[in-house]
Write a protein that binds this DNA or RNA. Sequence first.
DNA 1: ATTATTTTGTTGCATAAGCCACGTTTCAGT
DNA 2: ACTGAAACGTGGCTTATGCAACAAAATAAT
Lengths: 265, 265
Amino acid sequence: MSKAEIKDRARLKKKERRRQILLELKLRPHVRISELAQRFNVSTETVRRDFDALSGEGLIARAHGGASAPSQGHYPNLDERANSRIDERERIGRRAAKLVREGETVMIDSGSTTIEMARALAYLGTPCTVITNSIPVAMTLGHGAPEVLLCPGEYLAAESAVIGTETLEFLSRFNVDRCVIGSSGFSTEGPSESVRGFAAVKRMMLQRAEYRHLLIDSQKFGRKGLAHVGDLTGLQSIVVDSRPKDALLGALVAANVDIISTDDT
Amino acid sequence: MSKAEIKDRARLKKKERRRQILLELKLRPHVRISELAQRFNVSTETVRRDFDALSGEGLIARAHGGASAPSQGHYPNLDERANSRIDERERIGRRAAKLVREGETVMIDSGSTTIEMARALAYLGTPCTVITNSIPVAMTLGHGAPEVLLCPGEYLAAESAVIGTETLEFLSRFNVDRCVIGSSGFSTEGPSESVRGFAAVKRMMLQRAEYRHLLIDSQKFGRKGLAHVGDLTGLQSIVVDSRPKDALLGALVAANVDIISTDDT
DNA sequence: ATTATTTTGTTGCATAAGCCACGTTTCAGT
DNA sequence: ACTGAAACGTGGCTTATGCAACAAAATAAT
């Protein structure tokens, strides 16, 4: 008996429905319960139950009347950290955006802090050309004044960015005024990164830029990620929310790195 | 005194508040009106007005009770199109996804119909490699089985895709099993496209693929977009929601193009 | 077939959000 | 100070959503 066919036409099963909800959320920032109920031809209560289940698994974020994707470029640990460091990130991003001058060409790395910078840059509306491997950065800037060149590469869903040899090869073809990178660790040995494949991208960006900036949250001082990105001497300046001290400060001075702190008046 | 002048010297309070809203949305997928009203110590009406203004500028996506970032899929042009003929698109997408076999390499074009196909393909979970210039397609497939290679290029916010010489050059380096494209028009002369810069991308994809498929809504039969994409003879098959008739059918038969209709049982 | 289990629908009500109109406050320019 | 425009708040009302408990239907298991 072809019950399956009949069901397929009439109504989707639970699993399929939830799958569709997740897919929909990859394309739209927000879906409404009422919309989905209509689309799936089920009651709003059913959709609500789907939402409860999915949000229990952390796959969606509930909202009054609907749901959204958990987070833009959902970074694994972002939720915990970001909530406690909103201001720091925002300030670092704003300060860093001011470094970019009209008409410049800038490479921007992927990462939560660089997304903040992109937001600030979009707000400033500085006309410039941005080359990035981060989808959120491209989308943020894409609506505004800057021209955006997106890198090719293997798409990494977890970070909403591209990496790989294609990315590196593409970056290697450009010479830019500045590059702005973030990193998951920062010690006297320089920035380091723990996400696979990102270190190489950051390294290449540093190589192709005349002025090299690192955006780094003071929480990351002293931490070391898996892969070494580069030496301190390779940086012109770091943008931080609070000035480093002791050994790290000494190393930065020795390496002649400018420290731009949002703490300074 | 002109209104423009007043606008220029917009109040700090309002401006700052709206800036904060945007910032918040970069970190969270969704904010509630009630939350913001409390946080800024203003009435909900004020926040509502902020939302109206911001959503008018396309900076946020409104929702019942709050708003979300337009981040993941804000396609101004796509929205209108997507709302009509959802079923047709879904069926076409589902059918087209079945064309892809395990291990194949596929180029997928940007467009609302190809996004539907990407969804279906993600659902099927066919392991394959996808090369695309569409951000939504990359994001949809990125979480699943397929490997995704994103093209470089100039980011076009309105279509959430990349175009330009970089894109073409990148595509030209690959030889793939299939390519799947959409178009805004389809006549006896072949598919045509009205969005600037897209025709060239489609043409290049057709050039690099062994099997070439066109996904096309029957509403577009007979329409001609600005730029010619290619001849009918360049296509192996078209996937449609309803079989073409008369002259178009004749031309397709003459060009030896397979017609895959979702109407067929 | 029958029962048990899961899934979905329905109803009623409390709460939240939307919306409109009007009054009040704020602030730049005079 | 004065004034007018813009921004903001308040109140009254309508609509939408959330929630919970129970009924109905579908599905799975025996």
